[in-house]
Simulated assay, not measured.
Amino acid sequence: MAQSGLDSHRLPNIAESVLPPHHRSTSTWWHGRFDNPWPTWEERSFSDVLRWNRERRKAGVPTDGYLEGNMAPSPADFAAAFPTHPVDWAALNNPPANAVQVTWVGHSTFLLQLEGLTLLTDPVFSQRCSPVQWMGPKRVVPPAFDISHPDLPKVDAVLLSHNHYDHLDKASVLQLNARFGERLRWYVPLGMQGWFANRGVSNVVELDWWQQVAHPSSSVQVALTPAQHWSMRSPLSRKASLWGGYAVLGANTRAWFAGDSGYAPCFQEIGQRLGPFDLAIIPTGAYEPRWFMKPQHINVEEAVQVHRDVRSMRSVACHHATFSLTDEAMDEPAKLLPREVAKAKLPPDAFVSLRHGATLVTAGGATLNQPPLLPVSLPVRP
């Protein structure tokens, strides 16, 4: 049964109610229905995109990804930089009752398990994050498993942060719907229900920022949290749908998935209203050049601050080491993270980068296992 965060698929009448600050009373092809209400947001124009492309060509930045000290890495070089870990299927099929368990599939896709539920964040299993599979950003590391894997536990819900192609993948949606059907519930931001309905997916719950719903037959509540970002699926759909992160609130455990965001005042509010969290999934990649990316993507230093703002006891990195999307070396975020964690005087395991396929288990601020981490032995550039 389809549900919506609003009673209809339109914005409330401005004469009937006062719109939240992230809603717009009127929309255009450029501004859309939603916006970022904080002074930390800055728009980027098409001329800014052209400037970025000119600068990266002049600097010789490869669009298909590079490693520190290696501007033309081979598949073997990427495999050495990002060694994968075999999925622990026994752990995935027997998650602990009183802890949060998370397994990194790749990029922003995680299998998140707590209090009897198994959830997927931003499921992208395709080779490329693109409207087509013959061009666009290509994986340098394969997904930790396929949707068709026979040992994959029943997925109860998907947490979809926004509609960019590295977060919403049509092929993965169709495969998940084919395997799990109506048993699988999709939590999405406002304005996205129609996209799913057009592809035969009906068990969709639209949420506005701070809206909280109970997941059926469980003790878990799901809430959409604010993020400073934007949405666009086609040139005429900019900000037509909302974006955000998710708090998953159990009776005894809590987890948070940030989605994509620039640094904004919303993180402290999330921590105050919904924290502390046993586990947070926070992006650490796709941040250069800063003049262009700062409003929409946090860097590693800011990610550590987000960890503190939302009052997370343990965090894992996402949105890195999988697709080449921006100008930093693909192995830079994982190398910088331990340095920034130490600079913030946090325990070394407070915020880590997992290997693809690795599983972390945490409860009450303690890491209950020793998950394989990405290597950090090579020097970081000044």
Score class of each variant (00 low, 15 high):
S25G: 14
E332Y: 12
H320E: 15
H320M: 12
A363V: 04
T359Y: 06
R308L: 12
R57T: 09
E55A: 03
Q101D: 08
M293E: 15
L249H: 03
V102G: 14
K294D: 15
Q221E: 11
R51V: 01
W104Q: 12
E328D: 11
P39F: 04
T109M: 01
S261H: 07
G259C: 03
S4M: 04
L111A: 10
H31Q: 14
Q268L: 09
D208L: 01
E182A: 09
T109V: 02
W195D: 06
E206I: 01
V155I: 14
L168N: 09
V222D: 07
Y187M: 03
Q175N: 08
R308M: 09
A81G: 11
N53M: 02
D208V: 01
F277G: 09
P375F: 05
P289R: 02
L378K: 14
A334Y: 12
W134H: 14
Q305F: 03
D64A: 07
L368E: 08
P21A: 13
M313D: 15
L354D: 11
H31W: 10
R56P: 04
P142N: 06
F46P: 12
G244N: 05
T121P: 09
A178F: 01
L346N: 06
I298T: 15
F277H: 06
G285T: 08
G5D: 02
V222P: 10
M135I: 10
G106A: 04
A91D: 13
G245W: 01
Y187G: 06
H85E: 15
W243L: 05
H9A: 13
T359Q: 09
Y263D: 13
T118R: 14
S241Y: 04
Q127R: 13
A240R: 14
Y287D: 12
E332F: 11
S172L: 00
N13K: 13
N98S: 15
F110H: 15
Q296K: 13
V220A: 04
R381K: 14
A81K: 12
T103V: 05
L337H: 11
T109E: 02
F180V: 00
W195G: 07
L346V: 03
E68F: 10
G200A: 03
R314E: 06
R128W: 00
W29Q: 14
D309K: 00
R54Q: 11
K343C: 07
R185S: 05
R44D: 06
H22M: 07
T367A: 09
D7T: 12
N93H: 11
V300R: 08
A286S: 15
R179F: 03
G116N: 06
K239H: 14
P379I: 01
S217P: 10
R24S: 09
A280G: 08
S324L: 03
S241M: 02
V306W: 05
G275P: 06
F267G: 08
L184A: 05
P295A: 07
P73N: 05
P189I: 00
A240K: 13
R139C: 06
